[in-house]
Amino acid sequence: MILGIGSDLANIDRIAGVLARHGDRFRNRVFTPTEQAKAGSRADVAGTYAKRWAAKEACSKALGTGLRMGISWKDMAVTNLPTGQPVMHLTGWAADRLAQMTPAGHEAIVHVTLTDDHPWAQAFVVIEARALP
């Protein structure tokens, strides 16, 4: 069963401007060290951050909260499998919220997909509850 769906569209040029103005202050407030390392290794640094920004926004919407109620940017983090597939990791308040919305006898799975076509970065998040065996 679907517990939540979220989407977000981020402007890559806007994120590039925020990075230029606020640099490490912005990076350290919003992104985990792993996300920062990923962005730093890519040719399109701003695009990489914009996709992850959009993923965090989409995830907060799928959780039914938006970015309020105690959720932190770093409570939602995107990494990639060796195949390149993005994976959303939830910690802190986001993980607590996910546990609250997951029915008994089920496990929650957070699906995320990212794409970009300059100047836009987009993310979709679907939270699924699967019955435990």
Rank of each mutant, 00 (worst) to 15 (best):
F26E: 13
G40A: 06
V45K: 07
R29V: 07
D44F: 12
S41P: 01
R29Y: 13
R29S: 14
A58F: 15
S41M: 02
R42F: 08
D24M: 04
E35W: 03
K51N: 00
A43C: 05
C59P: 00
D44P: 06
A55C: 00
C59T: 15
A43N: 02
P33G: 09
A55I: 03
A43P: 04
Q36I: 05
T34A: 13
K56D: 08
F31E: 10
G23E: 09
E57A: 02
R21Y: 14
S41Y: 01
G23N: 05
S41W: 00
R29C: 14
D44V: 02
S60E: 00
A54V: 10
A50S: 15
W53G: 09
D44W: 11
T32G: 07
A50V: 08
N28E: 10
G47D: 08
R21L: 11
G40Y: 07
S41F: 00
A37C: 03
A20M: 03
C59Q: 04
E57T: 00
W53V: 11
Y49I: 06
F26A: 08
Y49F: 15
G47H: 09
R52N: 09
A54H: 11
A58L: 13
T48M: 04
A54F: 12
H22A: 12
G40W: 06
A39P: 04
V30K: 12
N28L: 02
T32M: 05
A54E: 11
R29E: 15
Q36A: 00
A43D: 01
A50I: 06
F26I: 03
V45M: 03
R29Q: 15
V30T: 12
R52L: 01
F26P: 04
T34K: 14
D24I: 04
G47S: 09
A37E: 01
N28T: 00
F31V: 04
T32R: 10
A54R: 02
T48D: 07
S60I: 02
V30F: 13
A39W: 07
A46T: 07
A58Y: 14
R42L: 11
S60T: 06
A46D: 11
D44R: 14
C59W: 05
K51C: 10
G40S: 05
K51T: 04
D24S: 10
W53P: 05
A50W: 10
A55R: 04
Y49C: 00
V45N: 01
E57H: 01
R42G: 02
A43H: 09
R25H: 15
F26C: 07
A58S: 14
